[in-house]
Nucleic acid binder design. Structure first.
Lengths: 112, 112
DNA sequence: TGACTATATTCCGACATAGTTATATAGTCA
DNA sequence: TGACTATATAACTATGTCGGAATATAGTCA
């Protein structure tokens, strides 16, 4: 029987999936929408008001976030309410902020 | 004095920084390079061999990863050795994989 | 029913990005 | 020195993405 590999191999398809989800988080407008939803569910008009995005633009970004599974939508009459479906997304952002802090610290060391 | 806000506000510049770093992780070729470096430092030729990327393409992706602070470069004669500068990048990938697993689980529930 | 409202979608132009090919840079060795 | 090697960069093309304007879709209410 073949030797057990030291490290799990990631298939190209898996890499594509992971990359696609990172891409959803790689836009400041979408991050602003996520941030605006930390305190709880909001509808589109509220998010437009809060972020300054256009209605069409906000709607598109919200759809992408929901499609990726970070947000959940709930329709109530004319309104669509968006809320966080996977709180793990905030852990991701926190980790990224920590990574940025470490990098800035290292950059500072280089200069000093 | 002004009331202390419930939640820290993120400046547009901060959102841009975070988004830019997520963008670096949003490409399967770069994820493959990162994955190939989990076991330790490698030079460009080794990474080209391991990933199947072209030399020019690999070099560009490696530069981006180093620029973002995820990788460190070390030159030794003709060779350039790349290694992980911030292991936090693997935590980010692990978290993202967990998030994918949760989403797939939820999608499964919907069908069942 | 028809006017109105909230949200989603389509179309389009501007710009960014990934990959290839060719070339530049710089270190090694005869 | 000159031939060779490893890596980086430039130029180009094809494709992807963002945002705006206009329009479509549905739900509400008179």
């Amino acid at each position: 029987m073949p030797r057990k590999p030291k490290m799990k191999n990631l298939s190209p398809a898996a890499l594509d999936m992971i990359a696609a989800r990172f891409r959803v988080l790689s836009d400041p407008s979408r991050l602003a929408l996520l941030h605006a939803l930390m305190e709880g569910e909001r509808n589109v008009a509220q998010l437009v008001e809060h972020t300054g995005l256009s209605q069409a633009n906000a709607s598109k970004h919200l759809s992408q976030l929901a499609e990726a599974g970070f947000l959940a939508r709930r329709k109530d009459g004319l309104f669509t309410w968006y809320g966080v479906a996977d709180p793990g997304v905030f852990e991701l952002c926190d980790l990224m902020c920590g990574s940025i802090a470490r990098k800035l610290g290292r950059d500072l060391q280089e200069i000093a």
